[in-house]
Design a binder for these strands. Structure first.
Length: 726
DNA sequence: CGTCCATGTGTTTTT
DNA sequence: CACATGGACG
């Protein structure tokens, strides 16, 4: 591999970024401008042209997917193994560091990682022991509070005293939570980062070691970093001025979970010698799509500023469709996808992007009805499934009898006659004597203070775990997992249950054994650490795909958040309505509104060739019919890039779709005599001429849906609208 | 212990 | 509306 191969495929700005001198670098990269490519080629350049050792490079991403992709592309480009490079997610790298230095970082050797679900359960249990009412102190809110504090680097003990009783209580709970985790050797996601930061900050020699080692630190999606992540990077690089970051302030869409776009500004201040390079040439989308995206995002304030351009043509205009309701919206989209496929397009090149997951259903139903294969992203992932977490809980108990969350989870799963009462006694004793649940249960049995049946059941559970742990000694990882799945009775339990769900659970449990086998073969295993601990950490940190690989050519359905980083020839951006997108919760707050706008920008820039934007005049939301206004984002797009899609043939479609969906009032309307029948042409004083598409209600409540030539479709009250038949 | 109904709740999501 | 959760009951 020659150096020319590293720089030849790059444009001038990219090349400048890749070969920038040995100090801090900020690459401000617009959507589709090749930012990941720049990062990868820069690493290649450092290795090949600058002769930097692989050991001296640290590359950080947010998702496992991005990390894996980076490794794969580097290996392909350089024909070398990436084993010596530190490439990983913030959390993965933090975990690696903490395992190495567990004792020095104040953690148990066998500390376990809590995923959000574990954390939630732990908080609920904590509330019980603190005798706090969940209704007054919602666990979700507490979880959010604790994570937000940790993301900002705040420990409970450092929080300022407050006279606000709410704040005081939150702080108290946070403190109790920290103690509980510390005592039980549990580390949540935010803790991984915070603990790593504190550890490096407080151990000068260790910090010096890593500062010395990492001559180059590179970060992808820098706009998504939170305070602790920034502080962590800062510690590692402050003396050497060797931080290269790639990001796009216009694609910052994770502010709600602690990400700070301001970190880009902070970087500019903290690394005054840095070089800033903008990547503005876009290789993805047509001129119309880019110009719409540019116009939209220009409305946000305080941007670092970028303007995307392309050498390609303007392409087709963006089509805007005003649907009657969400069914019609889905019908339209699926109809266009059908056309796309008939004309030779691939289904997997088409994507439907929505603001919230609940919107997917309409599209799924319609796609199903048309026999078009599709895939929905999001939802439960493999290691998050209940049965998998049950099996993992047994494994955790086998590894460490004092794992309270594991104990809580499976003490009565499958049911073995240990009721709430017995469990309460165990908890009480545990709390009173500061024992683990396991030890408390032991003690209760030994003291023989429980009813005979409860003692028997409890002893049965403890023996079962002991026996399994004994049998697991010296076995291969996959055998241990198999033992947990079978010996625990979980597999049996679901085998006996009937129904599709139970069947899937059995399959998942079997697949877990396969996953363990696979894991043992993977090169990432660190021989110095226990295989089981690593497997459990892997399960928490990398929850896996949400469904098995589908090789079929599928239409892609996902939220806008999930679509970041992806691109498709044909994109449908749906539900552009006030209160839905932008979401109701963000309407009042200018900062959140800007984030919604960035989300819209992300959505638009996913499209390579053709973009459709749809909105519905009427949408059922939480069971109620709403008549949302079209989204402000739609109004903010430049009209010369847009084309309004008009219905062909007047009313034929709405009637058909009303009948199909069994909409009784619409069908009645179709038969209703009088001057305002469906299809009737009418004139309105303000909106001009139109056609009646739908009719609902009677008497004073009667409404009609009219598609006006000038202003699109509107719902009007017959009693007030003063419609005139033509 | 499991089943039934009342009640409430309702963006975005990775780690 | 659709789903999850929790309490009451058999």
């Amino acid at each position: 591999m020659d150096i020319t191969d590293i720089i030849a495929p790059l444009n001038e700005a990219q090349r400048e970024a890749v070969t920038a001198p040995d100090r801090s670098l900020l690459v401000l990269a617009g959507a589709g401008s090749g930012k990941t490519r720049v990062l990868i080629h820069r690493i290649a350049w450092l290795l090949r042209a600058e002769g930097v050792s692989p050991h001296a490079i640290l590359a950080v991403t947010f998702t496992n997917k991005a990390a894996n992709e980076m490794k794969a592309r580097l290996e392909a480009l350089l024909d070398l193994s990436t084993r010596d490079l530190w490439v990983g997610t913030f959390h993965g790298l933090a975990h690696r560091l903490l395992r190495r230095h567990a004792a020095d970082a104040g953690l148990h050797e066998g500390f376990q990682i809590l995923d959000s679900d574990d954390q939630y359960r732990l908080i609920r249990r904590l509330l019980k022991t603190l005798e706090l009412d969940e209704a007054r102190w919602p666990p979700r809110q507490i979880q959010w509070y604790i994570n937000a504090q940790k993301d900002q680097g705040r420990r409970a003990r450092n929080l300022p005293d407050s006279y606000d009783p709410f704040e005081r209580q939150m702080r108290r709970i946070y403190l109790a939570y920290e103690e509980l985790c510390q005592r039980s050797g549990l580390v949540d996601f935010a803790e991984l980062l915070l603990r790593t930061h504190e550890f490096l900050r407080d151990n000068a020699d260790v910090l010096a070691h890593y500062q010395e080692r990492f001559q180059h630190v590179l970060v992808d999606e820098f706009q998504d970093t939170n305070d602790v992540q920034y502080a962590w990077l800062r510690l590692l690089t402050q003396d050497r001025d060797n931080l290269s970051v790639v990001g796009d302030d216009d694609q910052s869409i994770y502010g709600w979970r602690g990400a700070k776009v301001e970190n880009l500004h902070r970087f500019r201040r903290d690394y005054p010698r840095h070089r800033m390079i903008r990547l503005e040439q876009n290789y993805r989308s047509t001129g119309n799509i880019l110009s719409a995206a540019n116009t939209l995002i220009a409305r946000n304030e305080g941007r670092l500023g970028k303007n995307l351009w392309t050498e390609g043509g303007r392409g087709e205009p963006i089509s805007v469709y005003a649907a009657f309701n969400e069914q019609d919206e889905a019908g339209f989209v699926v109809n266009r996808i059908g056309r796309w496929v008939r004309e030779g397009g691939r289904r997997s090149d088409a994507a439907i992007l929505y603001r919230s997951n609940a919107q997917s259903r309409q599209f799924e139903e319609r796609l199903l009805a048309h026999g078009i294969p599709y895939r929905v992203y999001g939802g439960l992932r493999f290691f998050e499934r209940a049965e998998i977490k049950d099996a993992l809980a047994y494994l955790r108990l086998m590894a460490n009898r004092h794992d309270d969350p594991g104990f809580e989870r499976v003490i009565n799963t499958p049911t073995r006659g240990i009721g709430a009462k017995t469990l309460d006694l165990v908890r009480e004793l545990a709390r009173f004597e500061r024992l683990s649940l396991w030890s408390a249960a032991r003690k209760l049995i030994a003291d023989n203070v429980l009813p005979a049946r409860a003692t028997g059941a409890l002893a049965g559970f403890l023996d079962l775990v002991e026996t399994m742990a004994g049998a697991a000694q010296g076995r291969a990882l996959w055998e241990q997992v198999e033992l947990a799945v079978k010996g625990s009775g979980l597999l049996e339990h679901y085998r006996k249950e009937k129904g599709e769900q139970a069947e899937a659970r059995v399959e998942n449990l079997e697949e877990l054994v396969g996953a363990a086998r696979q894991f043992e073969l993977s090169p990432l295993i660190d021989p110095e650490l226990g295989g089981l601990d690593q497997f459990l950490a892997h399960a928490a940190l990398e929850a896996g795909e949400n469904q098995g690989e589908t090789f079929e050519d599928c239409v892609q359905l996902m939220t806008l958040h999930a679509a970041k980083g992806l691109e498709f020839d044909l994109v449908f951006l749906v539900g552009l309505e006030e209160g839905l997108f932008p979401s109701l919760q963000s309407l009042e707050d200018p900062a959140r509104l800007e984030e919604e706008r960035r989300l819209c920008y992300v959505g638009i820039t996913r499209a390579r060739r053709k973009l459709y934007i749809t909105h519905a005049e009427c949408r059922r939301l939480y069971g109620k019919e709403t008549y949302p206004r079209r989204s402000r984002f739609l109004r903010e797009l430049p009209p010369d890039c847009l084309e309004e899609v008009r219905m062909k043939g007047g009313v034929s479609r709405p009637v058909a779709s009303a009948m199909q969906s069994g909409d009784a009032s619409a069908m009645l309307g179709a038969d209703a005599p009088g001057e305002f029948r469906l299809g009737q042409r009418v004139r309105h004083g303000k909106f001009g001429e139109g056609v009646i598409l739908q009719r609902e209600g009677d008497g004073a409540q009667a409404r009609v849906h009219v598609n006006f030539a000038e202003v699109g479709a509107k719902w009007l009250m017959l009693a007030y609208a003063k419609l005139e038949p033509i």
